[in-house]
Simulated assay, not measured.
Amino acid sequence: MIRLGTRRSALATVQATMVADWLRELGHEVELVPIVTTGDVNRAPVEQIGGIGIFVSALRDALLANEIDIAVHSLKDLPTQPLEGLAMGAIPVREDPRDVLVARDGLTLGELPSGALVGTGAARRVAQLDALGLGIECTGIRGNVDTRIGMVTEGKLDAVVLARAGLSRLGRLAEVTETLDPIQVLPAPGQGALGIECRAGDTEVLAALAPLDDAATRAAVTAERQLLATLEAGCTAPVGALAEVVDGEDGPELWLRGALGQDDGVRRLSANGPVDDPVALGKALANELLERT
């Protein structure tokens, strides 16, 4: 029996159930073990209650204590520094990583009037939206998908910005009024991807997870998260990144775009490199962004 740890939120439960079903299809027995994290019970702004890791630390503690065998994370919530004793057993095929707008009256970002109130708790989104010069006003929000979209339907906000992947997994894409082009707003590093952690020495579980791993997704998110790590930034920092495996002249290559919010605007750069060395690509682009600041 594989004990799968998950947060109790609707989205986390859906994601954990997806992974459990994949493992069951491979012939494994799986039990879901709900775990409460700091981020689930404290509604203060993320940066005020610990920032990096508030949604994952309890799951990782349970893994190390042998209370569960695997933990399913939204990869964008996971600190970039590895934790001794744990291993990333699988990174499955990624959902669409882009951000989306859910706005009143079916409006798109460009159709929102000057002064429109847009809800998002991410510094990354705020920096990039401000840089577009649309005259909208961003305000910090916390809460689950129902809470955030409810602020729009109740008239408290004109729009909210969310991750498309979460709405897709919840079956709520019909509420999206616009999928934002990464040219305008780059997603968070690792957005749309799941990370399945286990204990580093648990060879049986590692073997069970191996078929779920997608090499292209792992390469892409590794480059994005290395960019974040090199910038010494956390999940609350104004950093956007998106990597993709594309066809190059000499075969597949990795293309990485990065955005770094600064007081005077947003720096955007891109670079490409070999698929088998995503760490070097992430470091190189991060260093170039730092040189341009």
Rank of each mutant, 00 (worst) to 15 (best):
D213S: 14
V46K: 14
E175G: 03
G135R: 11
L109F: 04
L132W: 01
V72E: 07
P34F: 03
C138H: 04
L194C: 11
G240E: 07
A116R: 08
A280W: 04
L59W: 09
A62R: 12
G133V: 04
L64K: 03
L109D: 04
L285W: 06
G155I: 13
L173Y: 01
L109Q: 01
L228M: 07
L23G: 12
R164L: 13
A87V: 14
G150I: 05
I49K: 11
A103R: 02
R199T: 08
R257E: 13
L64H: 05
D40M: 13
R7L: 12
G261P: 01
T108F: 07
V100G: 06
E29Q: 15
R104G: 14
D21E: 15
L285K: 13
D181M: 12
A259F: 06
G140E: 12
A286D: 13
A286W: 12
A280G: 15
T222Q: 03
D61Q: 15
A220L: 08
T37N: 06
V33E: 09
A207K: 10
A10H: 09
T222D: 11
G51A: 03
T203H: 09
A188C: 09
L209D: 05
R172T: 03
I141L: 10
A259V: 07
T177D: 00
A20P: 12
V266N: 01
R225F: 06
P189S: 05
E197D: 15
E95K: 09
A103Y: 04
G121P: 09
A216Y: 07
I35S: 04
D146L: 11
V41A: 10
A103Q: 01
V275M: 07
D250R: 06
L206K: 04
V205M: 09
G140K: 03
A284I: 00
T230G: 02
V14H: 12
A284D: 13
P79C: 06
G240T: 02
L228C: 09
P79D: 12
A193C: 08
D264E: 15
G234N: 06
T139H: 09
P79Q: 11
A123R: 14
G258Q: 07
R292C: 11
R94V: 12
E249F: 05
G85K: 08
L86Q: 10
E47Y: 11
T236M: 00
R267Y: 08
R169I: 02
E29P: 03
P182T: 10
F55D: 10
L260W: 14
V72D: 02
V19A: 08
A159G: 04
S114I: 14
V56P: 01
A208Y: 04
D96C: 12
M151E: 11
D69W: 02
L242C: 04
L117C: 02
D276N: 14
A131S: 15
C138E: 09
D61S: 13
G201T: 01
V152D: 00
V46R: 12
